[in-house]
Design a protein around this nucleic acid. Structure first.
Lengths: 97, 97
DNA sequence: TGAATATATGAACATATATTCATATATTAA
DNA sequence: TTAATATATGAATATATGTTCATATATTCA
């Protein structure tokens, strides 16, 4: 198993990042359109701080990217793998109901 | 967002379950062939107890199924969504290197 | 410049969770 | 039945992590 150590680690990190309700909600918001911190925190009903912290996590995991426009920072999904992962996961989850 | 509360919850749970190195390794083992606890613990170098606990988690998350054969319990992946999720995730992870 | 707005971030706290250890259950073989 | 083997599981410990609070930084506008 040793040769795959880094891969397992990276995969675990990716899934760990997706394994939180707040981050899931944020990613769903961003799958609709790019948004800034206040937009998101209003939509999901959490403090700016909590959202900002989680966006930092998501950015560190390269799942979202940020573009500064004036005072605001607009976030969007980094690539389309994320949405595909959601689609598959939703399929799995719904089948089990 | 309220109408999706359960979905977010289920998705978070699914990804949370996949967000652990030990469970990732176990799932990789089982993607090769069905195995019992001792096989897995030897392959990944962890105690039976740790593996058994994690298999219980994976089973509760409906990601693996178990069949008892004599003294041994053989585990295998519950469905092929899991492998597809891995494939996509690996794609994402590898692109970022 | 100063005030207001948007975001980021460090520290602290609370909670969740993975592993270990000890023990229990179940099956097979002697 | 007893011993051996395979697995399961409860409790305890250690660690990781999410949220809050306070504060810092950056940008815009008056």
């Amino acid at each position: 198993m040793k040769q795959n150590k880094d891969l397992y680690n990276d995969l675990a990190d990716l899934f760990k990042t997706m394994g939180d309700q707040t981050r899931i909600k944020i990613l769903f918001c961003l799958s609709k359109k790019e948004m800034c911190v206040l937009d998101i925190s209003e939509l999901i009903g959490m403090t700016h701080s909590a959202v900002s912290h989680q966006l930092a996590n998501l950015k560190a995991a390269r799942m979202v990217k940020a573009i500064k426009k004036g005072k605001e920072v607009y976030y969007s999904l980094d690539d389309d793998h994320i949405e595909k992962l959601f689609d598959l996961a939703i399929e799995h989850v719904k089948e089990g109901r």
